[in-house]
Design a protein around this nucleic acid. Structure first.
Lengths: 347, 347
DNA sequence: TTGTATGCGTTATCAT
DNA sequence: ATGATAACGCATACAA
């Protein structure tokens, strides 16, 4: 593989006619070397195409410039490109700062913790980026206890005194925007279909809907329904019940899958109603569904900035250790005005 | 981060009351050390939780035990979980062999090559895993020229004398299976909707259909159509034309997206026909679409085995440097028998 | 079978 | 401002 890696500090030093150390300084502490020699050294570096050996540097500095990111098995019905795009954004942001992302696969939290242990002592990772955090996540406790730098994409739900840095998307702001949007279209009977209580993300999103309903003086009581899973069929059945029960003109949904369930139920009942999803997945695009796009790439960038600060690089920047980003409303075909049937003829 | 990494070969040696070297041998050449001392050393290792420092080992052996994998930007309409699942399978397979996957982001082939260069000299990757290979892929030439070990997920289309190892899914076998399946359902007027000529993958898949049609003595001539993009709308329009032109009872499609276009077109024309897609994406699941599932995880495992062999680890195993895996037919609701009436206007 | 010496490429300490 | 020296943790060649 490598007739490569022959270019070392030593050879650059020889080429620039300085000592090895001066070359090192030129790279790591440019201000301490005389401008004249600095440029000469930099020229040599460029000419020889020198790249410092990460292994040697790591051995010396105890910093690998590598962040760990764990991959969970992809569920069969995952049509979100969220994880996909997050990790891409992360990798890109990282390499702009001289960092790299190392992958490891794990099936559950416990397995993942085992991997942390191995990675920290063996591969010397500088930190971790966690996703899919949940109530009482043992990974967070484990890492925090050992003072390992990490950031989570997802709030520490139900643990207000968590002190680690995190980034999250404002679910409530998203459904609030969707609800306002439907109201502006003329809807008043706006229902909500979401996940059961207890999921932080689900509760957050429902709040956005109920708050805005209250703010607008619209009735929300009883006008929502739970669906047990994030799959379309249960959602369709739940939606069918919801439609019969409260006869809404529009439904705000906790996810695109659930929204698709609503669309299916409405088709089956021969109704025409407005629907909004959440995530801007491919499903939403295909269904022409109004939905909320998560600022995934930006989240990744912020997350990266936060871990790096925790690690000690980049001590400048904002002091906050949390970032909460608003999703963006994407208006498509399911944003239809209310059916003028039961009321006046205001077309 | 690390009050960690204090456990070194030295400390294990002290604990086991042997020399540093014996500990090293116990790990790297267990057969050369006396069983008695071996167990004592291994106990010490376990007790102290020793993990060799990758950096130090890499510095010495010039092997990082790390493979590079490049991430491209995720297209907005990507509803495939292929890449997702491939990289997960890769990471899992790698870590079973003591290897890790390192990510890097790139926008195009040229940028990716720049990254190779940097990664090879700086981070000392042992090899690369490439996906999305295409005609005249410059990355392949670059890597091959420098004797960098790598494997591609995707055949070297149009370059029969390529010598690098690769893994691929047998597209022709997939569409062949779909065509036979439709024939078994009773269909005889089986059309095909695919991508334009020139894409290796697309041509391969079309071949499977046309070969089986010939084999079954069914007419294929003119009974297929191209659609310019892998998006649903162009596919729908192309499908509409196809349906009018050859009035098929079933359509084999090059992808799930394209198949969805056919479904939409059939709906619009009030027809009821059988459809098969390709990829078993979330879209196929949601649409209840019969499709072909790619053996993604297995592909990743094979790919890993092939690079590792190229690197020099694991010299045992089959001699072949190529693997071609058959996709699996997933039968769902769009596998309907032919309409018994010549042509009714379905409501 | 086990122990000793050396060097991988870098940065940190210290002297010049 | 620059250069010499040591050490990071490991594996390898060689000596015992």
């Amino acid at each position: 593989m490598s007739a490569r890696q022959r270019v070392t500090l030593e050879s650059v030093a020889a080429h620039a006619k300085v000592s090895r150390q001066t070359v090192s300084n030129a790279i790591n502490a440019p201000d301490v070397v005389k401008p004249e020699t600095l440029t000469r050294v930099l020229e040599s570096i460029a000419e020889l195409g020198y790249q410092p050996s990460r292994a040697a540097r790591q051995l010396r500095t105890r910093r690998s410039q590598i962040l760990g990111y764990s991959l969970r098995p992809v569920p069969a019905d995952a049509h979100g490109t969220i994880g996909d795009r997050f990790v891409h954004g992360l990798a890109r942001a990282a390499q702009q700062r001289g960092y790299r992302i190392m992958l490891f696969a794990s099936g559950n939290d416990e397995e993942e913790i085992l991997q942390y242990d191995e990675l920290l002592s063996g591969a010397d990772l500088d930190g971790f980026v966690l996703t899919n955090t949940h109530h009482g996540d043992p990974r967070i406790a484990w890492l925090a206890e050992r003072d390992v730098p990490f950031v989570t994409f997802g709030r520490p739900w139900g643990n207000a005194d968590a002190t680690h840095p995190w980034v999250d998307v404002d679910g409530a702001a998203g459904t609030a925007a969707a609800t306002r949007h439907l109201h502006e279209l003329g809807h008043t009977r706006i229902a909500y279909l979401g996940w059961p209580h207890g999921s932080g993300v689900g509760d957050d999103r429902r709040t956005g809907w109920s708050d805005v309903m209250a703010e607008l003086g619209l009735p929300a009581d009883g006008r929502w329904q739970e669906t047990t899973e994030n799959a379309t069929e249960p959602a369709r059945d739940a939606a069918a019940t919801l439609l019969r029960r409260v006869s809404p003109g529009a439904v705000v949904c906790v996810s695109d899958s659930v929204a698709l369930g609503v669309i299916r139920a409405a088709e089956a009942q021969g109704r025409r109603l407005a629907v909004t999803g959440f995530d801007d997945s491919a499903v939403a695009l295909l269904a022409g569904m109004t939905t909320l796009a998560q600022p995934v790439t930006e989240s990744a960038q912020r997350a990266l900035a936060l871990v790096l600060r925790d690690i000690g690089v980049d001590t400048v920047g904002p002091a906050s250790r949390h970032e909460i980003l608003a999703p963006q409303l994407v208006v498509r075909d399911t944003s239809i005005p209310p059916d003028p049937l039961p009321r006046t003829v205001g077309s």
